[in-house]
Design a binder for these strands. Structure first.
Lengths: 219, 219
DNA sequence: TATATCTTACTGACCGGTCAGTTATTAATT
DNA sequence: AATTAATAACTGACCGGTCAGTAAGATATA
């Protein structure tokens, strides 16, 4: 009879956790793709970070491309849904709402994970036409509509200049996304880098003056 | 005696043009890297487009990475130098100058070549620390100084709000670069895409209101 | 002017490493 | 015992970089 002392129950070399794997693999993909970019990233590395073997990754995702697509989908949609919820629930002046939306969107974007994701999306989109379509419909347009909605609210109250919203709804995303990326990446080189607060307040100040009908009213 | 009728001078299979090769190869690199991104681009393709063989590329550039570096350097520096020249030569109101600078920078950025270049730079910079340093010093900082200079001129004349320039100098590049990229890439998906003129005028309008002390004065 | 000699710009087949994706096999769970 | 989650060894395409060889064209010689 083989010695089976109580403490020596041989721990299984691995566990079967089919429900948890996909999310774990996507999270690992965020890390690995984020650091290396799509082309350089190795499925082997994603697997290692996720704590599984390469074969397991292919058990849950058809291909490297499919994994990338799923990653972008799940991560971005979550961020946008949150912002939409906030706008729906908020009431008050257009200005207050706008300032708070900018602040929240910026804080979402400034994380390493999100700036990396944005970088990847912009550089890889041309190679994934199907994902590009999805991204345009479900991200660009939704974000634009969200901002436009905020601007319309302030415009209806006479707080914001009429007519500006056509471009202004597009411009805010550009300002937010690009500023967050610059702050994140170039901070280390920049002796006179702005602090996070300075960046946010500067951004709000510039954009607010851009859209307000009567900027002279102090905050 | 072999028949050598006047018209049948056998054309050489290739010519020796050592002075012209580097520029031709860089130009080909702009096309190929631009379409495929750094990692996907094949030196074979660059060579084909340049009309030479792969070996020739390695005759003039040490490696794929070195070719990429040279490409970024030559192409971006040219664009910035032009803008600096313009600001030096111009006199007139700060507002006029700013509007004209925005217009010119936008027109420079909106070409496929330049948006592709910007895309590549942003996605590849993390993998080329040496190039990142160069890019920050010679592009980011120079551009920021250029805009700051324009803003300072208008500020001194009382045209622009004081204090805004800290962030505003950074924000303009973001707005320009990102807007040009969005326009270029997503135009095809966007049923209500802005025309080029609408984009430029919208951008100018938003930014101008952002920095002007008395926006009410009509253009 | 014709031809021989030399230099070097240029070519393209090849090598070796890398990595997406597959498959034969093992082990956890029911 | 049957099922299926998970592994690990394997394959083959692909591509950056090399180098032995080729030919353009310049220079020297007759």
């Amino acid at each position: 009879m083989p010695d089976e002392s109580p403490s020596s129950a041989p721990p299984p070399r691995w566990q079967r956790r089919p429900e948890a794997r996909p999310e774990e693999i996507v999270e690992a993909a965020m890390t690995v793709f984020g650091q290396s970019g799509y082309a350089r990233a190795k499925i082997d590395d994603v697997a290692r970070v996720a704590g599984v073997s390469k074969g397991t990754v292919y058990l849950y995702f058809d291909s490297k491309e499919a994994l990338f697509r799923e990653m972008v989908r799940t991560r971005i949609v979550a961020a946008l849904a949150e912002a939409e919820q906030f706008v729906r629930d908020h009431d008050g002046s257009g200005r207050e709402l706008l300032v708070e939306v900018i602040r929240r969107m910026y804080l979402r974007m400034r994380s390493d994970q999100m700036t990396q994701l944005a970088r990847m999306v912009h550089s890889e989109l041309p190679h994934f036409p199907e994902l590009a379509r999805f991204y345009f419909d479900e991200v660009i347009l939704r974000a634009r509509r969200l901002v436009a909605q905020v601007l319309a609210r302030g415009e209806a109250r006479g707080e914001f200049r009429p007519g500006a919203s056509g471009f202004a709804a597009r411009g805010l995303s550009s300002l937010l996304v690009h500023t967050a990326q610059m702050q994140c990446f170039f901070q280390r080189f920049d002796p006179q880098a702005l602090t996070e607060d300075q960046a946010i307040e500067g951004l709000i100040d510039l954009y607010l003056h851009g859209v307000l009908a009567h900027p002279s009213d102090r905050t």
